[in-house]
Nucleic acid binder design. Structure first.
Lengths: 215, 215
DNA sequence: CGGAATCCTCTTCGATACTG
DNA sequence: CAGTATCGAAGAGGATTCCG
């Protein structure tokens, strides 16, 4: 009944009392790309079990990291979104991305894949100084997932969903998008028809140059 | 038998497969201030249970985050220390410190306290630009704990144990050291005899000005 | 159909006792 | 000092059911 705690006067331990349970940080990762419905979260987190998801959502709400808001009709959906305290976890997640990119154990077969996770990873490898003066809007359509990336004022903003006025729209399959993640040249992917690019190829080129895995 | 995994192609999930089990990140925190023996770790992590500690140490070794090294006689102790992959978790831990400092749930009574944890927290709030040109060596003795902080080349290095050639040595109790952590002025603590300062008070003053909780 | 609560089994945790 | 063994308690995971 009473929640498990490390019971240490230490801000790492205090943070982990809130964040350390299984699935919690992955739930935060999902919400970093925008509000999500209960079933969206279930879908993005195979294996979580409906009771655990409900339990985590309840605890995160009590701890003030997320809020539940009901969209007005006709959408009439209930979504979960990060509060400011939740948003402030982004630096923690981005450091985990950076570390994990180098040190995670080798991926298994049949692992779940969502292109939208890349929207978060991009933030971790974004190089602000390369974006100075740039203003770009990109939309990425990978299988049935859609997310967008906006570059302006030297900042990158990524989120689930389509872009309002995209300079370029990329449409591809999960398999071919992963080639890009593995370091293949987007220009080659475009040439060989693995990416379908609508709009400004130049904008896409500028965009893909904004990232550096070395950090 | 087989280790539990989120089984997702995502570097956050990959990182959490390695780091996400209970106690693991606190174990890393302990090792960030230097090599520790099995019983040192047991003492710093009340409640962990000897089997879990052994299990975590084994897994972290297999994953390449720590190594076990035997100090030569006469010390003849066996200690665990971080590998480079382990050391690279420092940014993750420091972001957790920053987040946890603002958002952790209110501390309970009878919580475990170790002054050495502050040695890690200091790194999270260190302001390099204020340390330009400074060279300082401080030793902190809090109850039966001793740790040191070295400032040089605009960098801060903290570790368990005493300093080689300290400019200043502070001796105090855990209770009075926590007053400092809560924001009380070190000069006042010194005046009222809550801190015993040996060596250069000026060096101590310069040192305590290098930190900013706002980030 | 989205959003959960319930039930049941299995794994992990935590505390203590014990051993090289 | 540095672990292993054991066992009850708590948490996780999957299926099913319930509710609006």
């Amino acid at each position: 009944m009473t929640k498990r705690s490390y019971n240490q006067t230490c801000s790492v331990a205090g943070a982990l009392d809130v964040l350390g349970e299984r699935w919690t940080l992955l739930l935060i990762r999902e919400l970093l790309t925008g509000p999500k419905r209960y079933n969206d979260l279930l879908d993005a987190l195979p294996g979580i079990g409906t009771n655990l998801l409900a339990d985590r959502l309840k605890n995160l709400t009590n701890d003030g990291l997320i809020t539940q808001s009901k969209l007005p009709p006709p959408a009439a959906a209930s979504v979960y979104e990060l509060t400011e305290a939740g948003e402030r976890l982004e630096p923690v997640l981005l450091e985990l991305v950076r570390w994990g990119m180098r040190y995670q154990r080798k991926a298994k077969k049949r692992a779940t894949y969502r292109a939208t996770w890349t929207a978060v990873a991009m933030r971790a490898f974004f190089q602000p100084e390369r974006a100075r003066g740039l203003r770009l809007s990109c939309e990425l359509r990978v299988g049935d997932e859609v997310f967008n990336a906006q570059v302006r004022d030297g900042e990158l903003h990524t989120a689930a969903g389509s872009a309002a006025a995209p300079d370029v729209v990329v449409t591809t399959t999960p398999e071919n998008f992963r080639r890009f993640e593995s370091g293949e040249d987007p220009a080659d992917l475009e040439k060989t028809g693995k990416w379908k690019v609508t709009g400004s190829s130049a904008a896409l080129k500028k965009f893909t140059r904004l990232f550096e895995l070395g950090g």
